[in-house]
Design a protein around this nucleic acid. Structure first.
Lengths: 263, 263
DNA sequence: CCTGTCATTTGACCTGTGTCAACCTTTACA
DNA sequence: TGTAAAGGTTGACACAGGTCAAATGACAGG
């Protein structure tokens, strides 16, 4: 099991912008999809070796994005789909009046930027929540390649579709769930995604603030904080600052099912 | 301007399941994308004549869906993308405990079923809210064709991307807007989509119940009803049952901007 | 090591929306 | 045509989550 940068002791991880260790940054320069350890999560999924090489050729640019910096901004011309090699992002949309809403949190192996395809301008902001590394995939060349490689085409369609299904899940969360259900769903989702990446299902660092969690879940930061405190009292989690330890995964799952009883 | 079936007098439209007039049903049998009057809204957008013919060949099936019937259900194997030729649909997802959430309302020229691509099983239900007609597009043949016709590929990607952007808009609505903003946004969205189809921006029939509107907007049906009543008092709309007349479009738009003042 | 800023927690109180109930209107169907 | 069921409106009231405020803790930068 690889060691999660998110998984140091609470004190050590309280700061999230520790620079990546040297051997990692070296690896990045040389790494192609073909030997990227995210290839089973990311765009190359299911590609044959020679197909993967052709995908490699597209990805001319791999860039660092520092914590707090934007990968792209709403309104900016759309050119690339981005694959996260390492790090953590949020996407958000801004209303004219200053209100904004976080529409998602993205981690390694996930794609960013698909919001830009429809108008050829990005519709949201993508901001790094920790120092990150990102592969830039020129979209129009990706389209061309996916006309030639059926597996790639299929996989890309599945990724977009999965995003649609995920968004519907968030709508249910925002439209129908109470505070505790939202928080439980949020934690279980993070846990499941960390697990898929070989990290601990129970311990991780939240890369986002309470306010960003609240924005995503349609809650105020105080409400998020209170829910965490309540969960802690009930021994469901142990949390201090950004360090999150889920003590009772089943307990969290039960929270999602409590409404059964009243139905 | 074509006459909207939605746009009869209130009394006449109160019933929504009037069978389509004969000349229409005849047309349906013969109609191909190439002479469908929705081709500028639907999948064929931008295709050359010969390309459109090839798309026509895919669409072997055009079916009626009666009001209340499902086009597909969650869990069902995914095979087709559906293009709405006429009528009106809702999509919804059901939680195990019986709570459900409407994730969208779809009208003529829009595509349904893209939620099924990711797992090859549908993730939501699509239900006709009035008698409708739908083109069945075998997805795997559509993929093949879009490998051959770049314009089709691009357009399909744009449609999926637009769905993602739309969903993000709904998240903002659910996460950040108050009742009046949600209702105003909902009405303006319908108005704009009817306009794009050549119908009146100001008068139309709501095909959905207050409960369905509420479900979509994360509100209870009583709250929707009260908001309509308040808007009516303020002379923003005139509504009786399903008949909706927007009296003051700018007034509705201002509701969306009221938060500017407090920011 | 000190200091200002930002993030978080907690309490007290308020308000918008949900809940429950009654009643009315329209529609579906026998 | 009558009747039951479904959809819609309105009022009274409750409560979940928001607002405001104060205090504390963490961390960056000098």
């Amino acid at each position: 099991m690889p060691s999660d940068k998110a998984l140091k002791t609470p004190r050590a991880t309280a700061t999230n912008n520790t620079p990546a260790p040297k051997e990692f940054s070296l690896a990045v320069i040389k790494t192609a999809c073909s030997n990227c350890n995210l290839r089973e999560l990311c765009l190359p999924l299911g590609l044959a070796d020679d197909e993967m090489e052709r995908l490699d050729e597209l990805i001319s640019v791999r860039k660092r994005v520092r914590r707090g910096d934007s990968l792209y901004r709403a309104g900016q011309a759309f050119e690339y789909i981005y694959a996260i090699r390492s790090g953590f992002f949020k996407t958000d949309v801004l209303l004219e009046d200053g209100r904004d809403q976080v529409t998602g949190f993205q981690m390694a192996g996930e794609l960013l930027g698909m919001d830009g395809i429809s108008t050829e301008f990005h519709a949201c902001n993508a901001v790094a929540l920790e120092d990150s590394e990102v592969c830039h995939i020129p979209f129009f060349r990706l389209e061309k390649l996916s006309r030639e490689i059926q597996t790639l085409q299929r996989h890309f369609h599945q990724v977009m579709s999965r995003e649609i299904v995920r968004d519907h899940g968030v709508m249910v969360l925002l439209g129908k769930m109470c505070v505790e259900e939202r928080i439980a769903a949020f934690l279980l989702n993070l846990s499941q995604r960390f697990t898929a990446r070989g990290f601990s299902p129970a311990e991780f660092n939240l890369r986002m603030t309470r306010e960003e969690i609240g924005s995503y879940l349609g809650l105020k930061l105080e409400t998020v904080s209170r829910a965490f405190s309540r969960f802690q009292e009930e021994k469901l989690i142990s949390v201090q600052q950004k360090y999150m330890h889920i003590l009772d995964i089943d307990g969290l799952k039960q929270i999602m099912n409590r409404h059964n009883q009243s139905a």
